Simulated assay, not measured.
Amino acid sequence: MQIIRQYAAVPAPLQGGVFALGNFDGVHLGHQRVIGEAARVARELGVPLGVLVFEPHPKQFFFPNEPFFRLTPFRAKARLLESLGVDVLAALPFDADMSKKLAPEFVMDVLVNGLRTAHVVAGYDFRFGKARAGDASVLSYMGEMEGFGVSIVPEATLDGETISSTRIRDLLGKGDPKGAARLLGHWWTIETHVRSGDQRGRTIGFPTANLALEDYVQPAFGVYAVRIEFEDGPHKGVYDGVANLGRRPTFDKEDVLLEVHIFDFAGDIYGNHAAVSFIGFLRPEQKFSGLDALKEQIAKDSARAREILATTPA
């Protein structure tokens, strides 16, 4: 998959494709339907399949001081899109100039003269242009006027429930990673680098890989059954584990940290890139009277996590 950052100088081989339009935060089942329809049209026309997103997310541009909300920051989103067979990802900067473009200007500048799209696909609630004034009807009208095709995908539901990034964030905030995965179509995963910690876990027999949340949405604090994957290096592979996400009240810490104890594992992984998938929620984070009580609970959590992971497909 090729990534382009500017719409004004798109290489000729990447022009004339079919582009799915949206933020696609989470790349959930609803998003996958939009991209799937774009893929169908691209195959029919024999042209590249593209996805257009903005980086940073427009919400981050307009409300920079609000808490992190993203289900999939750029790297994670790109990986998921590539797995869906996307040929080109147009990750366009959302800046002051882009925020001021009227809906017709966005269509002409980006879709017509920049990407030279043959066809675009968007969800029923797609909005674009200054003040989000452009909608599906505006896009369809502009497509008819300028000679490119437009497909609008209706609302996606699962068992009567609307599939949305907002609903998935809500489920994660309530400690329901399985419910979130049901709407995502994949496990919710944090991708970041293993950093050095205080190595306290080694002293009680449960060494941990320490990872920061960075700009991911903050799920419920507590203990989870997880899988951790290393994409390269000597420890490349997927491992089962148990993780605590939170502020570690037993040690009076304030920063939020994800600590993963990897089962049956030994090795130096500091600095490695890791992807941690949240499989099951075991219990809320709690404060213990001392290290012995904490050690006893971690042993119980580990046993329960092993049980969950043994019966949960990858």
Rank of each mutant, 00 (worst) to 15 (best):
D87G: 00
V88L: 04
F94V: 10
D95Y: 01
A96H: 09
D97L: 11
M98V: 08
M98A: 15
S99Q: 09
S99A: 15
K100P: 11
A103G: 06
N113T: 07
A118C: 10
V120N: 09
V121L: 05
D125V: 03
F126T: 03
F126I: 02
G129T: 03
A131L: 10
A133G: 14
D135G: 12
A136S: 08
S137V: 13
S140G: 10
Y141T: 15
M142E: 15
G143M: 08
G149S: 12
V153Y: 05
G160V: 01
T162N: 15
T162P: 15
S164A: 09
S164Y: 02
T166V: 08
I168V: 08
R169Y: 00
D170I: 05
L172H: 06
G173T: 03
G173W: 04
G175W: 02
D176M: 03
G179A: 03
A181V: 01
A181N: 04
A181K: 06
R182Y: 01
R182F: 01
L184F: 02
W187Q: 14
W188Q: 13
W188F: 06
I190A: 12
E191L: 14
T192S: 15
S196F: 12
D198F: 06
R200S: 03
R202Y: 04
G205H: 04
P207W: 00
T208K: 04
L211I: 12
L211Q: 13
